[in-house]
Amino acid sequence: MGSVPQRPMKVVFAGTPEFAAVALRALHAAGFEIPLVLTQPDRPAGRGLQLQPSAVKAFALAHGIPVAQPLSLRMDAKDLQRAQEAKDAHALLLATDYDVMVVAAYGLILPRSTLDIKPCINIHGSLLPRWRGAAPIHRAIEAGDHETGVTIMQMEEGLDTGPMLLIERTPIGPHDTTALVHDRLAALGGEMVVKVLQRMAQGQVDAVPQPETGVTYAAKIAKEEATLDFTQPASELDRKIRAFNPFPGAHGTVDGTVIKLWGAELLDGSSDVPAGQVLAADAQHGIVIACGRGTLRLTALQKPGGKRLPAAEFIKGFPLDGLRFA
């Protein structure tokens, strides 16, 4: 007699932004059955502040996958609406035939009541236990890490504390921004979660506890962090500019105008002029700024209401000679 063909694993997917949508696309392309998607409620976006679906919801709807958007999964929430939506979501999960939940940048905490229904695994954009928490890519670049990666882990109630199922690494280059690293890790995470689920289906996955040493936390990015302090070393400012690209966008103030800084290069040498002073702003030298230690050449800038421009184009409409960034 021939072997009985194995049915595809049924995967409930929980995620919201593009990072998660990449993984959802990978699971769909790999043939996993996806009976339900959980994602955050639609948010206002754009100049008209029209409600916009998340990247995950847009993909699910385009492929006929049912979507639920509860405000919370905590049935004990003090807000009655959140509590009721959580109860409805819990009942929906209990009524859904699935084998595993995959979570990627969902934005809601999964309570014990959800974790206990079926196994839950998470796609996390760091080399755990380094950079547990909300903003691992930003924090890795800001800290000057030379590498990062993706960890697929089992979920438990702690913040990114669960045992690891698969971990893969990728370098962080000297010019990498959060946008660039995000896209690499999103693609890597999609490939890895498919691999992990295929191994799970065959009973070939080992869960390895996270090391007890090397734990760091990637706190959520606050907009005020993006205001640059030019008394800091040029190397730190360069990392912040790259870490806060595309969000929230590093910036400084010059002549009363807030200027977003999207790209920079470290230069050799230093200057004894006040930090933030524009040392050069011309086609030959570019825009060179004195820092607390070292100097920085700005390569891409944006004034309010304007477009992001290369430095040579920016200074045509906004001369910086003799000015100082605060």
Rank of each mutant, 00 (worst) to 15 (best):
F19A: 05
I289Y: 03
E156K: 00
A91E: 15
G31T: 08
V100H: 08
G46M: 01
A21T: 02
G305C: 12
G149W: 01
A250R: 02
L296F: 05
A55W: 00
P246W: 09
A312T: 14
Q84V: 05
K57I: 00
T216L: 13
L279T: 08
F247C: 01
G306F: 13
G256L: 09
V102G: 07
I289Q: 11
V215G: 06
D160G: 06
T295C: 13
Q154A: 10
A21H: 02
P129R: 13
R139V: 04
E147M: 09
T227S: 11
R324T: 15
H63R: 15
R239I: 07
A275Q: 04
L309H: 09
H182F: 08
H175I: 07
R47W: 10
R324H: 04
T39I: 03
K57A: 14
A105E: 00
Q50K: 11
T295D: 03
A280H: 14
A135P: 13
S126H: 06
A275R: 08
G286E: 12
K223I: 08
V37Y: 10
D238E: 07
A134F: 02
H63G: 06
E157H: 01
G162E: 02
S3V: 05
H251R: 14
A264K: 01
P211M: 09
V194E: 10
I287N: 03
A300P: 00
M153R: 03
A311L: 09
A222D: 12
E313P: 06
G249T: 05
P41T: 13
I123C: 05
K78N: 05
T114R: 02
Q202C: 05
D145L: 06
L165P: 07
Q81G: 08
Q154E: 13
H175G: 14
D76F: 03
L108E: 05
A218Q: 03
L36G: 02
A21W: 02
T299C: 13
M1Q: 06
V196N: 06
G294H: 01
R132E: 04
K220A: 13
L80V: 13
V56Y: 00
